[in-house]
């Protein structure tokens, strides 16, 4: 397989990969290669961006940020551990509905609900994943699709009058900071991208920790991982719980942004889009998630001039992308190093 990013000569990080502990990846890889100046420039551009564009594009950027958070949460499960989860919207739905119900009934502050929804969704992820975590590949895929559909239909059927059926629930409360109510697109923009930055920082740290390395080891070879003394089952469950929890916490922001939460936001199609974000960006690559969600969400908006033909182009582009750049838009370095070694043997 031809690798576009690694030219002749020893690739960076290769020496370390021989010892089995691969090179750095993700944002820190970016810092290493292009210096902190690039990161600074991106950060400044991100700060200035909402001041120079219309509210419409700020809104696009807000939803982009929400999908980056969701993509990061699914990347833990699909990208880092290699578990096929195609029903991730279920946990996002649990988080959103937890927020909407608790905020509406008990008036709990959204700042408190942010971690609370994460915990509820994480618990749900743990409980739902526990019996199915031993399933492999495609079987896990279909079970997670089934979970997604079960939860969506349950929400639609309005059990005990909690979820409001197909019309959903209206959120009355909003995030407040020192008397400032976060309502305008610009406020949401800063809130969402601050969360993205915090999550990215935490996830890069996690990726390079003992847990992250164990996850990658399971992804590459489960049997070898077990032989190395990794508790595969708990490591997988941990990834599922964390991924579900992050998706659930994102649900709080989503509920505050959308105001009306209804089951149609959490369809199987949305789960598939999330899955595509992770694979398109590059499995296990944190900057890849940002690019992947830009491709899946922002690109259709830019193509809006083509009106009804845009989704047609978009579908074709997805297939073409996989044919000509199967490693993703911004592949994780750990991933490419492994491929290159396989080739040189």
């Amino acid at each position: 397989m031809a690798l576009l990013r690694l030219g002749p000569g020893p690739a960076p990080g290769r020496r370390r990969s021989v010892s089995g502990v691969s090179g750095v990846s993700g944002v820190s890889g970016l810092v290493g290669r292009y210096s902190a100046w690039a990161v600074g420039a991106v950060a400044v551009a991100a700060m200035v961006f909402p001041m120079v564009v219309s509210d419409y594009w700020i809104d696009v950027a807000v939803f982009w940020g929400i999908y980056v958070l969701l993509g990061l949460s699914l990347n833990i499960i699909v990208g880092e551990v290699g578990l096929f989860d195609m029903g991730h919207m279920a946990f996002f739905a649990i988080g959103s509905y937890t927020t909407a119900i608790l905020s509406g009934r008990f008036g709990i502050s959204l700042w408190l609900l942010l971690p609370l929804s994460g915990i509820v969704a994480g618990l749900a992820g743990y409980v739902l994943a526990r019996p199915i975590i031993h399933l492999r590949g495609d079987y896990l895929l279909i079970v997670t699709i089934g979970l997604n559909e079960m939860i969506r239909i349950s929400l639609l059927n309005n059990p005990w009058g909690l979820t409001g059926g197909p019309n959903g629930i209206i959120m009355l409360d909003q995030f407040r900071i020192f008397g400032l109510v976060i309502q305008k697109p610009m406020h949401f923009y800063y809130l969402v991208w601050a969360c993205v930055a915090a999550s990215m920082f935490a996830l890069v740290r996690l990726q390079r920790s003992r847990i992250g390395r164990a996850w990658n080891c399971i992804r590459e070879d489960e049997v070898a991982a077990e032989a190395m003394g990794i508790d595969v089952r708990s490591a997988k469950l941990l990834a599922f719980t964390l991924g579900a929890g992050l998706a659930g916490a994102t649900g709080t922001i989503f509920a505050a942004k959308l105001v009306v939460i209804s089951p149609e936001s959490f369809t199987f199609m949305e789960s598939v889009i999330l899955f595509c974000i992770v694979v398109l960006g590059g499995m296990g690559s944190i900057p890849g998630v940002v690019l992947g969600s830009a491709a899946m969400l922002v690109l259709p908006e830019i193509l809006r001039n083509f009106a009804q033909y845009r989704m047609l182009f978009f579908g074709a582009a997805m297939a073409l992308m996989m044919i000509f750049r199967p490693q993703g838009l911004w592949p994780s370095k750990r991933w490419t190093t492994k491929l290159q070694e396989g080739e040189s043997e």
Partner: peptide
């Protein structure tokens, strides 16, 4: 066919792309 030898997930995403393409073609 171009993806037969590559990672299985890339073929899944390609299949999704085809699905979106066909669905929108039918709608048009």
């Amino acid at each position: 066919r171009p993806l037969r030898r590559s990672n299985r997930l890339t073929a899944v995403v390609s299949a999704m792309g085809v699905s979106i393409f066909l669905q929108n073609a039918a709608m048009l």
